[in-house]
Design a protein around this nucleic acid. Structure first.
Lengths: 333, 333
DNA sequence: CTGTTAGCGCATTCAG
DNA sequence: CTGAATGCGCTAACAG
């Protein structure tokens, strides 16, 4: 049944026929115990409910299956404890390698990753790189994408640009130094996107205003609150950059509640394109991430290491796509 | 390490300490080979990229984990062959039970399900019931929900109501008989929703018009085409019922391309609520499915069978919620 | 309580 | 080519 050893064609037929008739299935677990390999990839994403990760997972499983590997995916719901537990489950189930979109925001939170690698099981990071972790990472050009978006806004005249979900600091951020410190303790993607935002402002000589940067817990509701608060400012933003799907829907709620129209009253740009963004009226200008390719490349890197290759860990950066639609216009006056 | 047998507290401490220091992890595979149980649930959904299924999976894994079960989820991408292969993987990995949202549209396509049950591994269906398969099923009141939606439309005066994604028949459907035959060969959810639509029309004495029912392959693009075609009719629909997320975005594309405004020119109701639906302008009237509870209840039923309970298979029906927002209005004149 | 032994279902090695 | 024996890492049953 395992397709090894020598058998006469005739015996093989008889065995196969008997197996078929009896409904026999080889026990993959016993096989793994015996061989030491499971031909299975473990994946733990931050939130499988996020269409972005669903796309990445699709990319992963398509290419891993093409190589004869199963994939078992777990979701940590952006919770570090759950992430560790999930990795434990994968290690116990003896997967041959692990793909991880980690909720860790600092090197000390990434111990479990290093430990897994120390045990000899290869890990590759996806979507979120991690400093000081010697693992491959497959990501997009977050900083660039963010900068390009803000530059687009500045190019048509905006100078007050809100940033709808940034560092998840608990305390308010007032100075640039505090902001950078908070960013350093945030998810890599959030941090990068914030830096890109700052890059563009700096290049244009626009002063950074802490009131225009959302800080704290990130949910659609808090995004709506933060956006609403910005819009009530004496000098409110004329444009909003939303760094995630829920940030955008939250911002849209606030914009509508304030009785504002986009792009006339306020311009909008968001990360993570979707069908909905395209059918909004007007349609939303968005930054599209290559989810499938992200997943595919990640799986390729991991598979290579499983096959024994052992190059220097590297950060692979894929390009996002800026989709101009109808949610950007010059500010009033 | 397995927490069985008798050990002195002191020895236990020494063993645990040694295990800790050595980084020892019990091999879950070997354990399963030995005990015959894996404490893991297998799930194969039709499309993990669909937020609806992502929610169901979340419900499943939350409640199964609470019972000490891991869950490994696979996506069939609505493909029957992949579904069978996925179930094979799960059986090989010796999961203790399987949850399935099947792509099967007829009893003969459901053999693999019966086979799994014959081998002694419990299966419970979710989202889609299957006639002639003696398995538990956890679903929503699709037919009722659909009927209520159409009744709402009729109540405000609509008589020409388009049904944006119905039976996936390859040939056009002209008569009511053909329609029912096509429905019988469609996904259970699609079929139920179509019946509910027909129920409401019948009750109101409105004649069924095959031109107002989309038939064929179901993608956002084909939905847009179908809707566009309906809108070009000499006697076009004044309302559209969209039975899925992509059907709604497709319909919206067509509505916009035709230069129509909702709800003034055309009313809209859809299945599967989302943040986007709520922030559309006007916001969309939608039918919300209790995804989490659907998943949770499904897991409960399966867990019960794994624990040895063996009641008569039953179809458990949960209630959907009709969320009235701003996409329904009386037809013009 | 402790130490030993057999056995789970497979892959692999080694005589015939 | 075939059959039997050994071991993978674990649980379970059994003497001491």
């Amino acid at each position: 049944m395992g397709n090894y050893g020598y058998v006469s064609p005739e015996l093989r037929e008889r065995v196969l026929a008997a197996a078929e008739k009896l409904g026999y299935r080889a026990n993959a677990l016993a096989r793994s115990v015996s061989t030491g390999v499971s031909h299975t990839l473990g994946v733990v994403v931050a939130d499988i409910g996020n269409p972005f990760f669903a796309g990445v997972v699709r990319g992963i499983s398509d290419t891993s299956r093409a190589s004869g590997f199963d994939t078992i995916v777990l979701s940590s719901h952006e919770d570090l404890a759950e992430e560790k537990a999930s990795m434990g489950v994968l290690l116990d189930k003896r997967v041959d390698g692990i793909i991880l979109a980690s909720a860790a925001v600092s090197p000390k939170e990434a111990k479990h990753i290093q430990e897994a690698m120390d045990v000899g099981i290869p890990v590759v990071l996806v979507d979120r790189a991690l400093e000081h972790v010697a693992a491959d990472a497959v990501v997009i050009d977050n900083r660039d994408a963010s900068r390009r978006a803000v530059e687009t806004l500045i190019a048509v005249g905006h100078r007050r640009i809100g940033f709808v979900w940034g560092p998840s600091s608990t305390r308010p951020v007032a100075t640039r130094r505090e902001l950078l410190a908070a960013a350093a303790k945030s998810l890599w993607t959030d941090s990068e996107r914030l830096r890109g935002y700052l890059d563009a402002l700096d290049d244009a000589g626009i002063a950074f205003d802490p009131n225009l940067i959302m800080v704290g817990v990130k949910t659609e509701a808090t995004a709506a609150d933060a956006a609403a608060q910005m819009l009530r400012l004496p000098d409110p933003p004329t444009a909003l950059l939303c760094t995630e799907n829920d940030a955008m829907t939250g911002a849209l709620r606030a914009v509508r509640a304030a009785g504002l129209k986009y792009p006339g009253d306020i311009s909008l740009i968001g990360f993570d394109d979707s069908s909905w963004a395209a059918v909004m009226d007007p349609p939303l200008t968005m930054i599209e991430q290559p989810m499938l390719r992200l997943g595919a490349l990640t799986a390729e890197r991991l598979l290579a290491r499983i096959k024994g290759e052992d190059p220097e860990p590297e950060v692979h950066t894929l390009e996002s796509r800026f989709i101009e639609r109808g949610s950007v216009a010059p500010p009033r006056h």
